[in-house]
């Protein structure tokens, strides 16, 4: 893709062009734009369109436009799946789980960024283990742990598990941000007699706030998407997150005409779209760099 666009832009830079020619030269760029939009937007748009089609419109073909908008599939699915509960639950798990993960990760990140603590390498190895561990492999023992703590089928239990599994990546991300804060700042504070806690809370924390927001949001998204912990550790429908409740969309009758699963899909994306709109600037800009460069 990059090399296809290459000669054009170079000419563009070096030579003034007339209006018509300019458009021709932009063609590869526009082509790429079209390709990206079709590949990544079309599936979502198709689902949106399908969700407001009547059964008859649906059978007319996937690309037919609805003759009239119907919101009946939304109503049916909303009621049948109890989407209001599912959404509230998912929001609870994601907000609190990632909050707890960030809180747990702050001081370790600070310690790794600023202090020469013993066994740094071991800690990194452990953190990476925590990052990589596939959830399916620890279900049985975790189930056992939660049972012994009487946390099975509770929201609190799932929040703690999410926090524990979110913590390693949070430590790495926050540490990245904290390393980027000039060391002179806390050295100065140290010379003025500030304690570790004071340096941490007054110097590091405020400056690491962008990192905290990025880390928090990433963890929020991760918990939002998580599926198997919720499936295994929860029994009551009143505790299910969206991902588990949504599985019913894949059951037999809903799938006969696709407007109902499509409507369910659209509904399930609404909260995360809001989060996305609020934070995506931070996520998609250079804020990541701190975390990435390490």
């Amino acid at each position: 893709m990059a090399d296809a666009a290459n000669p054009v832009t170079r000419t563009n830079v070096s030579r003034p062009t007339t209006g018509a020619l300019k458009w021709v030269m932009r063609a590869p760029g526009l082509f790429c734009l079209g390709l990206f939009l079709i590949l990544w937007m079309a599936p979502i748009l198709l689902v949106l369109i399908t969700s407001v089609k009547s059964n008859a419109d649906f059978l007319a073909g996937p690309f037919s436009l609805p003759s009239a908008l119907t919101f009946a599939p939304y109503k049916t699915v909303w009621e049948a799946l109890g989407f209001s509960t599912l959404m509230i639950n998912s929001v609870i798990y994601a907000t609190l789980g990632s909050a707890l993960a960030v809180i747990l990760a702050l001081v370790p990140a600070y310690a790794l960024a600023r202090k020469n603590i013993p066994g740094q390498k071991i800690i990194f190895a452990l953190l990476l283990t925590g990052l990589m561990i596939p959830q399916q492999t620890v279900l049985i023992p975790l189930y056992d742990t939660l049972r012994q703590l009487s946390l099975l089928d509770t929201k609190l239990g799932l929040i703690i598990v999410h926090a524990a599994y979110g913590m390693p990546s949070q430590v790495l991300i926050l540490r990245g941000f904290m390393t980027g804060i000039p060391k002179e700042l806390d050295k100065a504070a140290y010379l003025e007699g500030a304690s570790d806690f004071q340096i941490f809370s007054k110097v590091i924390l405020p400056l690491a706030l962008p990192g905290i927001i990025v880390g928090y949001t990433l963890n929020f998204i991760a918990i939002w998407k998580e599926f198997i912990f919720g499936l295994v550790f929860l029994n009551s429908e009143s505790n299910f997150p969206l991902t588990v409740g949504m599985l019913k969309l894949n059951s037999d009758r809903y799938m006969s005409v696709f407007n109902m699963p499509a409507a369910g899909l659209v509904i399930s994306q609404i909260p995360i779209v809001i989060v996305f709109i609020l934070t995506y600037r931070k996520l998609s800009s250079g804020q990541f760099a701190g975390a990435v460069k390490g």
Partner: peptide, 19 residues
């Protein structure tokens, strides 16, 4: 409490053995 038919297959085993 309910899950869809396919999920029930695995969920049943977990539920029955739970405390």
């Amino acid at each position: 409490a309910s899950v869809d038919g396919e999920t029930y297959k695995t969920k049943q085993a977990i539920e029955l053995a739970s405390s």
